[in-house]
Design a protein around this nucleic acid. Sequence first.
RNA 1: GCGGACGUCGCAUAGCCUGGUAUCGCGCCGGAUUUGAAAUCCGGUGACCUCGUGUCGCGAGAGUUCGAAUCUCUCCGUUCGCGCCA
Length: 427
Amino acid sequence: MLDIKMFRDHADVIRADHDKRGIAHDSIDEVIRLDEAWKKTRYDADQLRRQRNQAARGIAEAKKAGDSTEAERILAEVASLGDQIDELGIEADNLVNSRDTLRMKIPNILHQSVPVGENEDGNTLHSKHGEKGEYTFTPKTHNELVDQNNWVDLPRAAKIAGSRFYFLKGDLARMELALQQYAIDCLTAKGYTFVQPPVMMNRSAYEGVTDLSDFETVMYNVQPEGFYTIATSEHPLTAMFMDEVIEPSMLPLKMVGVSPCFRREVGAHGQSDKGIWRVHQFTKIEQIIISKPEDSWELHEELLTNCVELWDSLGLHYEVVNICTGDMGTVAAKKYDLEAWLPGVDAYKEVVSCSNCTDYQANRLRMRYRTAEGNEAVHTLNSTAVATSRALVAIVEQNQMEDGLVQIPEVLQPYMQGQKVLQSCKW
RNA sequence: GCGGACGUCGCAUAGCCUGGUAUCGCGCCGGAUUUGAAAUCCGGUGACCUCGUGUCGCGAGAGUUCGAAUCUCUCCGUUCGCGCCA
């Protein structure tokens, strides 16, 4: 959510940003209109409250002085004030609620380095890492490979849960765990604190970190408590300091989180999403930073550097893409994606997303830090380190051999008792 | 699940019984003093607005009242005891 001061003092900046994104200004104008109406109504209500408070003080004094006639007189005079105050108060509440409901939907201000484009075709190449491997045979898709080796059981998962769930089995499941440990070790070595978050959140905290439409399409709602299962550990870790004033000496707060991630994937279909590429549940190791505003752009680059080092060390070929205006969501001010090459389909597909959300989430979460001038909103950043299901797909496809077995990346071998090749499951 | 206690500005705490201006301390910021620092002293330190002798704010919401941190109810959270439990 953008600071209301942006609408009052720098509406031109928001308008220019909407122009870049190619969206109309209607909502901005409406927020400004509602804000002015709220300020006026609020002022009127305050004036009445002031009258009432003065009267109440008068009554207190009169009673102390033992003058009950005077007390009765003031009481009669202000008898109707309460109703008027209630009326104006409700009106003011309605106005400010409408204002903020609308304000929540207005996207973050983009960084100037974000390329302008209508859709994902406008994303620009930031950097290339590694080379396409050369195969003396026709590379298979990960679906064919996990099927051939009995590493994934989709039909039985569908039977007991539903489509887009999976059993992960044998050596592939072992490598999944190795990936988790390796990624966590890499980041804790860089000074990031390992945190395991709750995997469910209440609605009010969740509203602080996500696009409102996600409640209808992304998160599972768990009854009877009404919790939401997290779609990524970004959400609990970012919301962790909700409603707090953080000591500046604690910043920047760097965390590496691991959690299962749950996604309903409403409306998501298509041949390319078969197998374990797009699923309802997967594990993700996530980097989170909470920082002072002046440090966030440098730290955004640090997050990307961490990803690059991690993915390079796995020996994988991928590209880094700078997401354009038309492909950016509501929350991020700038976003890099890592797209790994999948030889089975000869395409680059998203495996990592690295965002600077500036003060957008912090404003919603009322998450501030102390400065000489007062309390100011912090900046929040997040980046995938490894989403294991997708990393497995990239490894399986890129490291496949002619017999359909898969070489284990060297850095993961120590986590698998030195094993070098993933073996098939018997059943 | 049952029963009790508790929730007050960044932290810590008083006020609650008996309704009538949000207390003291620490930390932090500014000023005085100092070559500098420490110590000391003074002031400030939640949010909002049309910036006032203004309004709101004591976990959230509702109620009683001219007026609620204070009384009543519901909910949330923390904690202790009992029960169940990996």
